[in-house]
Amino acid sequence: MRTEYRGSTVYDNEEFFKKYIDRRYRNDSPNILIEKPVLFELLEDVYDYDILDLGCGDASLGIDLLKNGAKSYLGIEGSKKMVQNAILNLENSSGKIEHSTMEEYAFPESTFDLVVSQLAIHYIEDFSKLSQNVYKTLKFGGRFIFSVQHPLLTSSFESMTKNGKRNNWIVDDYFKTGKRVEPWIGEQVVKYHRTIDEYFSTLQEAGFVINKIREPMPQKQHFTDEEEYNRRLRIPLFLLFACTKPL
């Protein structure tokens, strides 16, 4: 039986990590062309913010936030290899990294103006507990902004068993939430499927006011390949939430 990687552990697999970095920063990466522009729309002004980044990866987001005037940046990351890369990336900045998972991190009370997470929360089994911890660690009026893999994709990974670029996607078992195993970059990676309603309800139950929900639509000006642009119009890849801890 092949290893099932949970959380960020897959990034400590040397071969996977190299392939992931190549994939993540390729010219037609949907993370860069589709998800990132909308994330920054939701972030708006971060000047003088104390920021916590959950599942920060190599801290590339942290670099941008600090350049945009953030007062402090703390990235939480469970993968040793990602932490090493994040430390190097933040070497000439005030940003800091803590080697910890989101589940194990001790969230200090009323500390941050913004908690952000970029495509990491779908690795977490207990989203309710995480939402409560984020609510606790935010200052009143603080914001929680995050992106996840769209639930239309996490409902079924059957489409990903085929090689080559997909032009059709299977949506199945949408309302059967919970653990999924995705065949991704040659490995078996555990993710957790939730409906949009479950994300929304869980955030409300934690006390958040949900300000915006976005399903980023590809923008033609971000693509040099029209065929790739049209392919990305077929299905939403990402889901983003912007929430506030009320005053």
Rank of each mutant, 00 (worst) to 15 (best):
M1E: 06
T3I: 06
R6E: 15
T9W: 02
E14V: 08
K18W: 09
R26M: 15
D28W: 06
S29N: 08
N31F: 13
N31S: 13
I32W: 10
L33K: 14
K36P: 08
L39E: 11
L39Q: 12
E44Y: 04
D45V: 11
V46W: 04
Y49S: 00
L52P: 02
D53H: 02
G57R: 07
D58I: 02
D58N: 13
S60C: 01
L61Q: 01
L61N: 07
G62Y: 02
L66C: 10
K67S: 13
G69I: 02
A70C: 05
S72P: 03
Y73M: 05
Y73C: 01
V83I: 12
V83S: 09
V83H: 04
V83L: 08
Q84M: 03
N89P: 04
E91H: 14
G95I: 09
E98T: 00
S100V: 10
T101R: 04
E103S: 07
E103D: 07
E103I: 00
F107D: 02
P108W: 09
E109N: 03
S110I: 00
T111A: 12
F112R: 02
D113S: 15
L114P: 07
L114Q: 12
V116N: 03
H122S: 14
H122T: 12
F127I: 15
K129V: 13
N133R: 11
V134H: 05
K136M: 11
L138A: 11
K139M: 10
K139W: 10
G142P: 07
R143C: 07
R143G: 02
P151S: 14
E158Y: 11
M160G: 11
K162S: 15
K165N: 11
R166C: 11
W169N: 06
D173K: 09
D173H: 13
Y174M: 05
K176H: 06
T177Y: 03
K179A: 01
R180H: 09
R180D: 13
V181K: 06
E182K: 00
P183L: 05
W184D: 14
W184T: 04
E187V: 12
Q188S: 08
V189H: 13
Y192F: 10
Y192I: 09
R194N: 00
D197W: 14
E198Y: 07
E198C: 00
Y199I: 02
Y199Q: 01
Y199V: 03
S201R: 04
E205Y: 04
E205C: 01
A206L: 15
F208C: 02
V209W: 08
N211Q: 13
R214H: 11
E215V: 04
E215H: 04
Q221P: 02
Q221C: 09
Q221D: 12
E226N: 14
Y229V: 01
R231Q: 02
R232H: 10
L233A: 00
L233F: 06
P236T: 00
L240V: 04
L240G: 05
F241W: 10
A242F: 00
K245F: 01
P246C: 08
